[in-house]
Structure formats: structure tokens, C-alpha cells
Design a protein around this nucleic acid. Structure first.
Lengths: 333, 333
DNA sequence: TTGAAAGCGATACCAC
DNA sequence: GTGGTATCGCTTTCAA
């Protein structure tokens, strides 16, 4: 209701010129401290807030960035978004969220809309670093940073350190005394699946079984059936490729009367809290620090927008292990 | 890289004045059709796109809206967001997403940032319609529409029709022949819990047990324990307050050797697909049509921004039942 | 039918 | 110290 207060209103109210008012607010130019203070006081009294459109027109900075994603359920996007927003809100930057699914036309529409609005940069996020979004973000007039999605060679891409995360999990299983380890994971064509599996194998030994499948609870179930019914040695520690699989594994074990963590310790991947905490017992899992990743991506795109140049390439951020009851004890590392 | 092409560049390229170029593009003024067509053609050839900041400065429309939410996991927000975005992208409107948790200071910062950017309107979303966000959105210079969160009396608020949804579920249980119904739901202090429970009772009869608890799987478990162990008549149909509870109920039933849907049919609420589809058997559940709700909220805020006046008040949008195997058959209603 | 000029709100340079 | 003036990119009267 209060209408919009312009700098002219402020100048009038303070009995100064528009340019003086502007300088007072931005701590520019030379002027009596008293004048500056008075103008600032009046500004807040009458609720003056500069019009970002006008300001952006002049500075060619809009203090907005765009977040492009094809992650429908937002399991990755939301924490990343939270991190971006948290890092950028202090800089007065707001974030456009554009969910484009896998639709190239929709992607283009959103990108164009953002460019029209003069976004200072774009962050592209996906679900896997070995696939790219269905839009071409090369050669845009604004910087682009990638997270969990494939970028151009000359750009900066953030992802989690899958190998390190898998290493943490496997090492922990060994540390708590498990010796017969297995890895139940997603489709082998995911780069992150291969990285995690490789790290698992390095730590657990080449004979430890690795079962590739899909990202679902039912695959976790089925994998347990295979491990238990094929007559081979049964594991006492299972590292799963994500939390959903882990959930399926735990449920299947319970149905077989196998105790978790007593007989078998189980570790997941993602720390998707709403799932991991509801699992019985609550799930020990690898956390990819998505929020922190978002923070870094946000600050990076801002840096680039401000003209800094940075080393392009893939940046792998470390994971942490969140220990809950599914493998005994409780530790945050 | 391509730099930015301004309307001056376009005018120069077409050999006309800036004002003619502008009029050609916006189908304003009178001019030779041939000229207009030529200018438009050249515009697209040289990749001219009008600067939304400049345009917004003049029109005092930024073609942006803000979405404010305190729903951390985004279970409600994301589908609503998808609907908003889908409805508004056709109008050239982009959406700022602001996750403010329950932090009033953060909320204010985000609201101020959006107002500075001259958003055309704000959509406030939450997790329940009987609580408001920790920010005061009354008296803002832009229209505000509420979804799943309490609004001011003079504003428009969207929510799902809990009573109708619960009615659908309960009626369906009766329709498939279940006669001993129970309702396992969340905390009674949620308005939507009471609405659903009331609708359940109307349809199922006043003697049908209603168990209030919390929004978790483990509560679903415990509720089954109570229903089965208290010596009372055991239900053959259970309507749950959300999908997580339903999941807990189904797991508990399986552990007791009770067949779903054979012995007991189970229905959830939310149609949180990633959960409902992974449940064994997949969960029949009430879908609140969140995307459609988002669409309507988006179009509403746009209407208001364009100056239309609408009847304030609460608008309850109908739910639909998504039938999966947890109560037999498969139907979408 | 087309173009010149004013102005949206803010900032920065240059006089005074 | 303070104030006029040009400018950012575009739209919109008003003249020609």
C-alpha cells in the first residue's frame, strides 16, 4: 500500500538534490557527515529502497542468478538451492528457479527469459555429472557454473567426490570389524556408480561382490535375495549406492530375520534425511554436503560475474559420513 | 559471447529510428507492413532481445514473481512451484524461489530483496493452512497470494479440499467392500487433520477408530500395534493421514503376516510419488493436485498484478484418488 | 508512415 | 560540500 518511494521523494524530503541523496546513501562523494547521516535517517524513515531495475540498467548487474535444473523431485536441487540462496542473499542476489525437466524447448524458453532479465549468471544442476542438460549453455553472455551436470570444458563444474565418499563408507565398515563386504548399487552406466564401485573395491578387496541394478528399494530387496540365496558367503557389511537401495536392503534383511546392525551393517549414500531417518534402524549414510556445494557454486558464479577469472575444470567436494544406528554407534565425520 | 544487442543496434541495422524499431516489434503505431516485417526479421537475425530491466523500469512490471516457502524438503513446494512456473512461463514471467525456513529475519531480507527487484507479486506457501509464515506480508505494494499457509482476510488463499479428499478415500474403501475402517493420522492440532478426520467419520461412521499421532512411519507402525493388540475389532481398511504413515502401516502389517490388500486395504494421502510407488504394494493415495494448485495461484497473482480484483477468501481445490495396488484394482478418479 | 524527444529511477562525472 | 546533467535501454507521446 505504502506506494513506492523514489529517490526524488527522498531528495525532496531531505531538502537536497537527487544526486546528493544518491551519494549519501552509497557513501560516495564528499559531503558533511551530518548531511549524510540525516539523509540516511530520512531514507529509512520514509522507507526508501532503491529500484533494482533502474540500478541494474545502469550497472548492468541485476543481482539475480538463474538456477536451471532437471531434477524433478528436487532431492539434489533443493539442498543445492538452499546453499546458493544462503550464500547469495547476503550479496543482495535473488535466485530464479527454472525446472526444465528434459525438455529442450522449455529449457530454451527459460534461458531466454533469464537472459532478458539480465541475470548475472546461471547455475546448471542435474542428477549426474556425466549427462548434460538439454540446453546449450555455451557462448552465453553471462557466466555459467555447473553442478552435478556436465559442463563445457572451459567452465567450472562442481560435484561430490564419489570415490572419497565411498572410501569413507567402506573404511568405516572395516573399522567396525566387518570383513565380508558387498556393494549394492545403481546402473553401471552412471559415472558416479563406477567411481564409487571402484573405491569400494580398492578398500574392500577385489573379491567383494558388487551388484549393479537400479535406483530403487525393490532392487535392494532383490539384491539381498541374490546375496543370501546364491549359496555364496553372506556379507556382514553392505554399502549401498543410495539411500533407497539401502532401505530396500534393510527391509529385506529384516524380513529374513537378519539383524541390522547386529548381523549385517548397512550404509547408504545421499543422506536423504527424510528417508534415512525413517528407516528402521536409522540409516548410516554418506552425505554429499550439497548445501556447501551450492554455496560454492553460488559464490563462484558471482565471482565470475564480477569479472574474476578462475581455473576451469571439475571440482570434487568431499563427502562426510553420517553415522546412525544401521551400523552401530553414532559418529559424525 | 555474442554481446548484447540493443534496440539501437537493431535500428541501425534496419536503417530506421529506434522508435520505429520499437513500434515494429510491439505491433504498435502505424507503419508499412513490409517495414514491420523487415524489422522483425532483422531483429531475429541479429538476435535482438529487449532488456527486461529497461522495459520494466518504464512499465513498472518486472515479469517476475516471488515464491516464498518454509517447506524445507519441498514436498509441497516443488510441485506447486512447477505449476506456477508452467503457468507463468508462457507469460514471460520468471519465479524467484526463497526458502526462508522459519526465520523471520531471513524472511524479511528475502521479501525486501524481491520488492527491490520490483516483483509483480508474491506467492507465499507453507505446509499447513492454519499457520502463517514468519513474515508480515500485509500492506505490501504488490499482490500476495497464499497457498497452504494462512493469509490475511482480504487475500486469496489456495488449499486442497481435505474433506473432499478424505471423503474420496473413505468412500473408495467402502466401495471395494471394506466395512471395518480406521483412520491413522497426524497431530490433531493440524486443521487439515481435523477436516480429514471429520470427513472420514462422516463416511465411515462414528465408531470407526481415529488414531492421532505424528507424521512418521514409526507412528504408522505403532498405530497398527495398537489396533491389533488392544483386543478390539481389527480393521479391514485403513485410511492414513499421509503416505509416510501409510508406509509404516503397510510395513507393520506385513511384519504381522497380514496381507495388503487382501486382508486390509490401505490408502495414504499426498501421492508423494517417490514414496507411494516404492511401497510394497504400491500405495493407493489421495493426490492434492498440487501442480494445478500452483497453476491457479500463479495465474491469480498475475491477474492481481494486472489490476483485476477478485473475491478474497479460501479456495479449496479438489483432490483426486490415485488407485494403486494397496487396495486392489487400478483406477484414476 | 516515420522520427525526435521526453522520461522511467538511479548513478557518476564535472562544474560551481 | 552540493547540484546539474548525461546516461543505461526502452516505450510513448507528439511533430513532421
Amino acid at each position: 500500500m505504502s506506494g513506492r518511494v523514489t529517490i526524488r521523494d527522498l531528495a525532496r524530503a531531505a531538502g537536497v538534490s537527487v544526486s546528493t541523496a544518491s551519494k549519501a546513501l552509497n557513501d560516495n562523494g564528499r559531503m558533511a557527515d551530518e548531511t549524510r547521516a540525516r539523509i540516511k535517517r530520512i531514507a529509512s524513515e520514509i522507507g526508501f529502497r532503491p529500484n533494482a531495475l533502474a540500478r541494474g540498467l545502469l550497472s548492468s548487474r541485476s543481482f539475480t542468478v538463474g538456477l536451471l535444473t532437471n531434477d524433478t523431485y528436487g532431492r539434489f536441487t533443493l539442498p543445492v538451492m538452499a546453499g546458493i540462496s544462503e550464500a547469495l542473499v547476503d550479496h543482495g542476489v535473488s535466485v530464479f528457479l527454472c525446472a526444465i525437466e528434459d525438455d529442450p524447448a522449455l529449457g530454451k524458453i527459460h534461458v531466454d527469459a533469464m537472459l532478458d532479465k539480465q541475470v548475472d549468471g546461471i547455475i546448471a544442476t542435474g542428477k549426474r555429472v556425466d549427462r548434460s542438460l538439454p540446453v546449450d549453455l555455451a557462448g552465453l553472455p553471462v557466466p555459467v557454473v555447473y553442478a552435478f551436470t556436465a559442463g563445457t570444458p572451459d567452465s567450472v563444474t562442481f560435484t561430490a567426490d564419489d570415490a572419497q565418499g565411498a572410501g569413507l563408507a567402506t573404511a568405516w565398515l572395516r573399522e567396525i570389524g566387518r570383513r565380508r563386504l558387498a556393494h549394492v548399487t545403481g546402473p553401471e552406466d552412471f559415472a558416479s556408480v563406477r567411481e564409487r564401485a571402484f573405491a569400494f573395491a580398492s578398500e574392500a578387496g577385489g573379491n567383494a561382490p558388487i551388484l549393479y541394478g537400479v535406483w530403487s528399494e525393490s532392487w535392494g530387496h532383490e539384491a539381498v535375495a541374490r546375496l543370501w540365496d546364491d549359496g555364496g558367503e553372506r556379507p556382514d557389511g553392505i554399502f549401498c549406492g543410495n539411500d533407497q537401495i539401502a532401505r530396500g536392503v534393510i527391509d529385506a534383511l529384516r524380513e529374513r530375520g537378519v539383524k541390522v546392525p547386529g548381523d549385517v551393517a548397512v550404509i547408504g549414500f545421499d543422506n536423504w534425511e527424510i528417508l534415512a531417518q525413517q528407516t528402521r534402524p536409522p540409516l548410516t549414510t554418506v552425505d554429499m554436503n550439497l548445501k556447501e556445494l551450492g554455496r560454492e557454486a553460488g559464490l563462484m558464479v558471482l565471482s565470475l560475474a564480477e569479472g574474476r577469472t578462475v581455473e576451469p575444470g571439475l571440482r570434487k567436494l568431499p563427502c562426510k559420513l553420517v553415522v546412525r544406528q544401521s551400523c552401530g554407534g553414532a559418529r559424525y565425520a
